[in-house]
Design a protein around this nucleic acid. Structure first.
Length: 679
DNA sequence: GATCCTCGAGTTCT
DNA sequence: CTCGAGGATC
């Protein structure tokens, strides 16, 4: 009786493992799950329960054994049966052309070479050994000849099958890249930060660190993924004629291959592929540092052979690096429109991500202390998918003895006024107000900016001269002064010809006809940005009632609380500000009072919130957002659970990753246009 | 009182 | 784009 129960348990265990392996394959390799996560969990729980009852049935390749294997005391050395080679690097198009030429010269009678091209992932190269379809060993690349045994950790990666599907050969050693998804990496870092644990600089380091852990419980649950890209030692498998065909066979065995793998012809095909992937780079959910081209036919590969430790039949074509090291030469403090003092690191110029970077913001003193940046330090600079360079961290081992700590200045570097930092606030401010030339300049620049009065041709070089100006009849102190200068006055400035001066006066004339919302925004009231200015304009309809409104009345406006209301109220109580406003109206700045509007326009998109990222082909982001609002939708700046859609254009950045993390629906340009049309 | 969602402000380089 | 902080909501 007991025996037959054990027998049926064994059968059920086999059945469950088969099902779970199948669902893993659907989920991780095909990206097309058949069952819900809940159903999957139910199968896992049943298997665990049975194995708990009959421990004899537990085998190392059971899906339950991925997590919770016992820690190892040290990583064992593994000698690779076939060396894991490194690749030659190409940085320029010419390098690729030269590579292709060398290949053709060695292969006589071949006019055009076929290459298999795929992205080069920024992860960790691993060799996986399957014996009779069963994963028996996973090892790091190491120096190429010997690596470290990391089987215990690799077993916890769900995308790595512990058992191959179908008829597997007696021995199959495959190579693949283990990497971390950016979204998962960020979430993991965030959690670590909240718990006060150490964080990782980038997904690559996180992957390498996790895989080399001794305790697999630390690696389990980390957001790993894997793509297999090559074959090592085999037994009982007759290799097909082409590399791409071999990868196709790996796919059928359940080993995940990059979906971006492509067959291309000649150097031209390679370069075309490089640009194509380069354009997609920022929107991929993982980091890549280039693409790899491999001669596709195995016969040709064998004919080409190797030099030293790199094959002659493959090359890695690198993208410009995202991260570089450089030295902090100094830290200066910039003064912004509101008087905020911002520390900026002056760097030894360094080429990162396609441009030369010589400055990077440090945001505020808290940030300086948190990262512990000192003058003389060597730092890691990153230009991720975004544009703005960032100091990632200090390389402490390279800190010179005479490194200087950054001190917050006591006096404003521009005007010499006292610097104050409110209790509990991150920013320090110059107290000089409009006495400070930096604040006057920034206020003018803000006034002229595109989203304010949009005065073309009034750049910072011109503003500098107007404010400090030797060559101006009267120094410009407020925006109203701008309208009193003539074309001749402007033409007298450095780097200003008659034509530019005429254009500027023309632009000033155009700017006089504006809207209340833009005007309020242009005034530069603290904490009043575009959205708040629009809310004030909608609520009050015209300027006079707002100027006379009490703090309480201002707080009636949606999204305005006591702090902002106080700023607005104080602004209009000040004599100087009222004079500037009167002067602006006197020179002809005007707008149509708008209807007081309570609700937004009704439309097919009412209740939907959109977030835009990347650039669209058919319209600018401003146009896109106008069209959404016209149909009753809302456009927000950041992705949250309440976001209905993220519209991702070319070179979408971190918002796309965030959307994927929160499972918010993502629309590409086509789908977005369709939605607009149907509305 | 805590948490989430938005907005504002400052920033790089070509 | 990122960070900090104000406002709303539970």
């Amino acid at each position: 009786m007991a025996k037959s129960a054990a027998q049926s348990a064994a059968a059920r265990v086999r059945e469950l493992r088969q099902q779970i392996d199948h669902h893993n394959y659907r989920y991780h390799v095909l990206d097309d799950p058949e069952v819900s996560d809940a159903e999957y969990d139910r199968l896992m729980r049943e298997l665990k329960a049975l194995e708990g009852e009959y421990p004899d049935l537990i085998t190392p390749d059971s899906p339950t054994q991925r997590v919770g294997a016992t820690p190892v005391s040290e990583l064992q050395e593994v000698v690779h049966a076939r060396p894991m080679l490194s690749l030659d690097n190409a940085f320029l198009d010419e390098d690729v052309v030269a590579f292709d030429r060398r290949v053709r010269e060695r292969l006589e009678d071949v006019e055009q070479v076929e290459y298999a091209a795929e992205p080069k992932l920024d992860g960790l190269a691993i060799s996986f050994r399957y014996e009779s379809g069963r994963l028996v060993q996973a090892a790091t690349r190491g120096d190429g000849l010997r690596g470290e045994d990391v089987t215990h950790n690799v077993r916890t990666i769900k995308a790595v099958p512990t058992m191959l599907r179908g008829a597997a050969p007696k021995l199959l050693e495959v190579r693949g890249e283990v990497f971390m998804l950016i979204a998962g990496f960020k979430a993991m870092n965030q959690r670590a930060l909240e718990r006060g644990e150490r964080t990782f600089v980038n997904p690559r380091n996180a992957a390498a660190g996790s895989i080399r852990q001794l305790d697999p419980r630390l690696a389990a649950g980390r957001p790993f993924d894997v793509f297999f890209y090559g074959v090592g030692e085999t037994e009982g498998w007759k290799l097909p004629a082409k590399h791409s065909e071999a990868l196709q066979q790996l796919r059928e065995w359940g080993l995940k291959v990059s979906p971006l793998l492509k067959i291309v012809q000649g150097a031209e095909g390679c370069l075309h592929y490089y640009r194509d992937i380069g354009a997609k780079r920022a929107s991929l959910p993982y980091e890549i540092d280039g693409v790899v081209y491999k001669v596709n036919r195995f016969v040709q590969q064998r004919e080409l052979g190797f030099v030293a430790r790199a094959p002659r039949w493959a090359i890695a074509h690198k993208f410009p690096a995202h991260e570089e090291n450089t030295i902090v030469k100094g830290v200066e403090f910039q003064v912004g429109r509101t008087g905020a003092l911002t520390p900026v690191a002056r760097l030894e110029p360094v080429f990162v991500g396609g441009v030369t970077v010589s400055n990077a913001t440090l945001h505020n003193m808290d940030e300086v202390r948190r990262k512990d940046v000192r003058i003389g330090d060597t730092v890691v600079i990153r230009r991720a998918g975004d544009v703005i360079p960032e100091v990632v961290k200090v390389i402490l081992e390279r800190r010179p003895k005479n490194a200087v700590e950054v001190e917050l200045p006591k006096k404003c570097p521009i005007c010499g006024s006292d610097v104050e930092r409110e209790e509990g606030e991150a920013v320090a401010r110059c107290t000089g107000g409009l006495f400070c030339a930096a604040q006057r300049k920034e206020a003018l620049r803000h006034f002229a900016s595109r989203r304010a009065l949009d005065i073309d041709g009034l750049g910072s070089k011109i503003i500098d001269q107007l404010v400090e100006g030797e060559k101006v009849p009267k120094k410009v102190r407020s925006p109203a002064d701008l309208y009193r200068l003539t074309a001749e006055d402007y033409a007298a400035l450095e780097r200003m010809g008659e034509k530019s001066a005429a254009n500027l006066v023309e632009a000033l004339g155009r700017s006089k006809q504006t809207t209340l919302a833009r005007f309020l925004y242009a005034l530069g009231i603290r904490d009043v940005g575009e959205a708040t200015a629009a809310a004030l304009a909608n609520h009050f309809g015209s300027l006079e009632p707002l100027q006379e409104a009490s703090e309480e009345a201002i707080q009636e406006v949606p999204d305005i609380g006591p702090v902002v209301a106080a700023h607005v109220h104080t602004f209009f109580r000040q004599k100087h500000n009222r004079e500037v406003i009167a002067a602006l109206r006197a020179v002809g700045v005007t707008w149509k009072d708008q209807q007081r509007r309570v609700a937004a326009a009704e439309g097919p998109l009412t209740g939907k919130t959109f977030v835009l990222t990347g650039s669209l082909d058919s319209m600018s982001r401003d146009e896109a957002s106008d069209r959404i609002v016209a149909l009753g939708g809302k456009v927000a700046g950041s992705v949250s659970k309440k976001t209905s859609y993220v519209v991702a254009g070319a070179e979408a950045g971190s918002k796309l990753a965030k959307a994927q993390e929160l499972a918010v629906e993502v629309l590409d340009e086509k789908q977005f246009l369709k939605l607009l049309q149907s509305g």
